[in-house]
Design a protein around this nucleic acid. Sequence first.
DNA 1: TTAGGGTTAG
Length: 573
Amino acid sequence: MVSSISTMSDKPDKFSVPIALKGCAGLAALKVGRIIHGFLKKDDEINSDMFVGSALIELYSKCGEMDDALRVFKEFPCPDVVLWTSMVSGYQQNGNSEQALLFFSQMVMKEGVVPDPVTLVSVVSACAQLANLRGGKSVHGFIIRMGYDTGLSLVNSLLNLYVKTGSVDNGKKLFGMMYEKDVITWSSMIACYAQDGKTTEALNLFHKMIENGFQPNSVTMVSALQACSAASNLGEGKKIHELARQKSIELERSVCTALIDMYMKCSRLDDAIDLFRRSPQKDVVVWSVLISGCAQNGQANTSLQIFNSMLCSGCRPDAVTMVKVLMACSELVILQQALCYHGYLIASGFDDKVYVGAALIDLYSKCGCLNDSIKVFEGMSERDVVVWSAMIAGYGIHGLGQEALRTFNQMIETSVVKPNSVTFLSILSACSHAGFLDEGVNIFNRMEREYDIEPNSEHYGVVVDLLGRTGKLDEALRMIEQMPIPPGPHVWGALLGACRIHGNVTMGDIAAKHLLRLDPEHAGYYLLLSNMYGEDGKWENMTQIRTMVKMKGLNKLPGQSSIETGSRVVASY
DNA sequence: TTAGGGTTAG
C-alpha cells in the first residue's frame, strides 16, 4: 500500500494518467484536463498510449469539444477499435449522428477495423437519433450475424431504435425474444407503447414489470406518466405520483415535469400548479408545460401571464415555448401580440423549425390573415404532415374548399409526406364548409382503402355534417347506423344541426334522444333542439326543453370576442 | 493497475 502511494506520487505514468483524465471527464473539468494534456505532450511514451488517447477523447467529447477530440485521434497512425469507438460515440453523444455514422463507415470500409459490441451500441444509437430505421435494421442484421445479439446493452440500444422510429411491432418482437431484461429494457418498451398512443399496453406493462420484481425508476415513471397523460387517466397518474413520493423522486426534474403535464392533461390545474410551485428547478421545459397546459384548459390569458413571469424569472424561452405561446395567442385571436412574438422567433432563429412554421400557419389563419399563413407555408423548405394539415385546415376555415383540395392533392402528389388522421379531418371539414359533397365523400372512402386510416367518430361527424348540410338527411342517418364504432356526441350533433336547417323534426327527435343520453350537460344541444321545435311551431316541446335547461342549471357558454387596439386587448366579451 | 456503450420531461 505504502509503496504504491510512493510510486503514484513519483511521476504520472501511462496507468495513472487515464484515471486522472477520466475523473476530469466525469466532472466536466475541462481546464484541469487541458493542463494534464499539456504536460503529456512532453512525454512521447505516455502521449502515444492508446489508453491515454481514448481517455483524452472521452474528456473532450464529454465536454463537447469534438474538434479537440479529433486532433487527439489524428495523432494515432493506427487507431484501434476502442479509439475509433470513442470518436463514434463522442459524435453521437454530442448530437452529431451523421458524423458518427460517417466515422463508422470509414472505420469499417476504409480501414477494415472490425466493430465490437460497444461500437455497435453507438452506431445503433446514432441511427435511433436520426430515426433511420433502414440503417438501424441492417445493423441489427449484422449484429445477429456476428452473434452479438445476446449482449444486454446492445439489444437495449436496438430496442431504443425501434422506440425512436415508432416501430412498435419490431420493438414488441425484440422485447418478446429477450431472455435477459433489466429496468432499461422494461422502460424502453413502456416508452415504445406510450409514444405510440398505446396507453393501455404501456400501463399494463408497467404493472407487469413491477410484478416481475423490477423497481421502476424515474425514467420508467416518466413514460408511464406519458401514457396517463395521453389517456387522461387520472387514477393511474395519481398512483404513480404516490409511488414517486415514496421513492422521493417526486421533485426530480423529469418526473416532476411529467407529473405536471399529466395533471394538466387531466384538467387538474390546481394539482399541476401546486407541483410547479414546489419544483426546485424551474427550467424552460417545466415553464412550457405550464403555459401549454393552461391554454389547453381554456386559460389562454393565464398562459400569457405565466409567460411573462417566466421572462421575469430570467428563464429564456426556446422554440417549443414560443409555439405554446403562439397557440395561446391563436386561442385569444390577438394578432398584434402574436406579430411581436413572430418577430422574436425570427430574431432567435427559431423560425426554421417545422413545428414553429405549423404553429404560425395555424395562428394566422385563425386570426383571419390567411395570406400570412400562405406566406409562411410557401417560405418553408421542409414541410411535415402537421404543416400540410395546418395549411389545409386554414383554407377550410376560410371557406376556400377548392384551395384546400388543391393543397391536399399537391401534398399527395409532390411530397413524400403521407396524410394522417388529422389531415383527413382538415380536408373533410374544408369540403363540408364549402359544401363539396362528392369530393368529401370520395376522400372519406379513400381514407381507409388507400391510406389504411380508420375513420374515428370525429371524421364521421364531419361527413354527417357534409351530408346533412346538402340535404341528404336519410343518407346521413344511414351512415350513422352503419358506423363500426359507437357514434359520439359530435356525430348526432351534426345530424341535429342538419335537421334544424332542413326542418326535419322527426329525425331531429331521434338525434336529440341520443345526444341527451351521451352528453346531458351540453347546453348548446338543448338550445338547438328548442330552436328546432320553435321553428316548427311545437311550442309545448320547446317549453319543456327550456324548463329542463333551467332545472339542470345549464347555461350556454357565452360567445367570446376580443377587441384589440395597438398592442393590447382592451376589452373581452 | 489503465479505455469506449443502453432508457427520461414540452
